[in-house]
Simulated scan of single mutants.
Amino acid sequence: MKLHDFFRSGTSHRLRIALNLKGIGYEQIAVDLRQEAHLRPEFKAINPQQLVPALDIGDAILTQTPAIIEWLEEQFPDPALLPPGRLDRAHVRALAAVVGCDIHPVNNRRILEALRHRFAADDAAINAWCGTWIAAGFDAYEALREAHGAGGRFSFGDAPTLADAYLVPQIESARRFKVDLGRWPMLARIETHCLELDAFEKAAPAAQPDAA
């Protein structure tokens, strides 16, 4: 498999975690968003949406991390990133969606670039914007995890799931936008347990070859 990604991209980060948790090897092909590489014709030919990541599986190119990770779960079911019970799977998917649907989309690069160039937002305004939606999402995540997380060390129980693959990159992003994470001790504990695993440590932005 060939993974077209960018070290600091939250969506790329979550896919790296999922691939690592499943023990799937992949070749990384850096798409440098800082150099607008995603806007070049050669990458548009790979992903018409011009977003990372894109996963080349040989006979197809997969885009959009929710779809890619669901495909991985079906194609490589062990170890599972979703619990066995239908209701439990719904709870885990809901936690992932708090990040993937409600926090990340309004804080991703193209939104922030529009705020900078069309509305003259400076760094302080960008951080305040991102912090607003991160805080609302993390408040909800902690409440949902408390209600439905089945205890344990991770977002759901004692094994990492889809939810953790979404959560950890969003915590990384929150630090970049100078969000005070002291407000969410439960999430901090979950992150600590995740980062004890090689799958998460090796997926971290700083560990990627294009991070230099």
Rank of each mutant, 00 (worst) to 15 (best):
K2R: 13
T11S: 12
R16T: 12
R16K: 12
L19M: 09
N20C: 07
Q35K: 15
A37M: 11
P41F: 01
F43Y: 15
K44F: 05
Q49N: 12
Q50S: 15
L51Q: 10
D56G: 09
I57H: 04
I57W: 05
I61F: 01
A67H: 04
I68C: 09
I68G: 01
L72I: 05
L81C: 07
P83G: 10
V92G: 10
R93W: 00
R93S: 05
A94T: 14
D102W: 13
I103L: 13
N107P: 08
R109M: 15
I111N: 01
E113G: 02
R116K: 14
F119Y: 15
A120Q: 11
W129N: 07
G131C: 03
A136Q: 14
G137R: 09
D139M: 02
D139Y: 05
D139V: 12
E142Y: 00
H148Y: 14
G149Y: 04
A150L: 04
G152P: 09
R153W: 00
G157T: 09
D164R: 06
Y166V: 00
S173Q: 10
R176G: 08
D180S: 04
W184N: 13
A188D: 04
I190S: 02
E191R: 14
L195Y: 06
E196T: 12
D198E: 15
F200N: 08
A206C: 08
D210Y: 01
A211E: 01
